[in-house]
Design a protein around this nucleic acid. Structure first.
Lengths: 232, 232
DNA sequence: CGAGGCCTTGAGGGACCTCAAGTGAAGTGG
DNA sequence: CCACTTCACTTGAGGTCCCTCAAGGCCTCG
């Protein structure tokens, strides 16, 4: 029996393009792997030797300059795809932020499998187009937004992507409780800021009553609309 | 006879995945269109009604905030693909920087054609993956680089992409003459800077002998290595 | 209880922005 | 052919937002 049969992201990941026989074939070339927080799956500049689906956990995609400055270029969630198929090298590292489980494939094996299964390539194309859209929206934030707009935008985006527990009211949640998978330094690396600036913005938003900070990694969004207004 | 037969990007654009019969079919759903400099093909937030291949010229992809700040999120060159297939809306505008010729398709027609031709979708996937790589590299520039690093990186990237006339020597061109397709303001919008900062960086690089500015739009790269050293 | 991470807070400085004036090239009309 | 306009770019002066450097507070875990 294929382990894909019990996969929790089976119907959301690109695998959803395949029937049960095809899934069986894919299963023979893949294997699951667990990553500890901080552990890397792929390093920047590596030859592209593997690709993967995220089953559980959150990972970051990051690049850096030679002198040590880092920029996080993407965050990856369950059912997302990682790695660079059909290419020689990967331009960014992939590192687990939380404990994570991924379904790993040798890149060449995956490439040939994908070329034989147009429906899979179609799913992958849709995902890649969506990721490109998201990435381009983030460029506006990096290039043109102020620190306060950046932090507000980040909190809203995280609210959308990790969902968090929320108190519903008539039109959407009134308050959203987020358990962030990232440290202050990592938030800074996503937003192109320093850790101190991020911290000061959090403190200010809390003082204004827009958010609350029940613990280090948790954020309670008290006023979603005020946050959206700040996001620009 | 199909006008694709005489197309100058026939062998570089995604169309290269198709045989002559398929090209004929694609030709029946596409038409060429000429754009004047400054003319837009797609507006930010529009429904995704058309996609296109660039035949000739340079176009920008841009988004902006409500209060008028603009960020250029991509530049598009001959043989590149534009638009958002398999999606409802386009997140960024598409505007000609130079006079441009594009091969336009109704998005729904293109979508169904592509779904019937896996080789075409494969080319499109490769292009999209490459564009995503390039976009993510640009995020490092926007988030973490200084004004001088940004301007140097921009000139090098333009050197690679538009090529320009160059004096070859043993290992690559010694001097590269670029005719930029963009104004100072547009360079600022690519780099997340102001026009004044860009201008000051150009002046400084000229004073240091790294570049020369023979006319408004032209840049002569005198010392490619010094520029690369400045790019970070 | 002490050590070591994170995070916060403060003071000061600098890179880039803002506002404003000046320059030069290209076009226009007498 | 030469004023005149126009527009893009350059240059300057001043301000501000964010970074840098440094210290202090608060959890976690030995």
């Amino acid at each position: 029996m294929s382990s894909c049969d019990t996969c929790v992201v089976r119907n959301r990941a690109i695998c959803s393009a395949l029937d049960s026989q095809e899934i069986g074939a894919l299963n023979t070339i893949g294997r699951t792997r667990t990553l500890a927080p901080g552990e890397s799956l792929i390093w920047e500049g590596d030859d592209s030797v593997l690709v993967a689906n995220v089953i559980d956990g959150v990972l970051k995609l990051s690049t850096g300059t030679e002198d040590g400055r880092e920029q996080i270029v993407g965050m990856v969630f369950p059912s997302d795809f990682i790695g660079r198929p059909f290419g020689k090298t990967t331009g960014h590292g992939v590192t687990a932020l939380t404990e994570a489980r991924v379904c790993v494939f040798n890149r060449r094996d995956f490439d040939s499998f994908a070329r034989e299964h147009p429906a899979l390539e179609h799913k992958l194309l849709q995902r890649t187009l969506g990721e490109l859209d998201r990435t381009r929206r983030w460029m506006l934030l990096l290039g043109r937004k102020s620190a306060s707009e950046k932090v507000a935008s980040f909190l809203l985006e995280m609210g959308e992507r990790i969902g968090g527990t929320s108190c519903e009211d008539s039109d959407g949640p009134a308050e959203i409780l987020l358990e962030l998978p990232v440290s202050r330094q990592q938030i800074a690396d996503v937003l192109g800021l320093t850790i101190e600036t991020v911290s000061r913005q959090f403190t200010r938003l809390k003082a204004e009553g827009v958010i609350d900070l029940p613990s280090r990694r948790a954020v309670l969004i008290r006023d979603r609309f005020a946050l959206a207004a700040e996001a620009g």
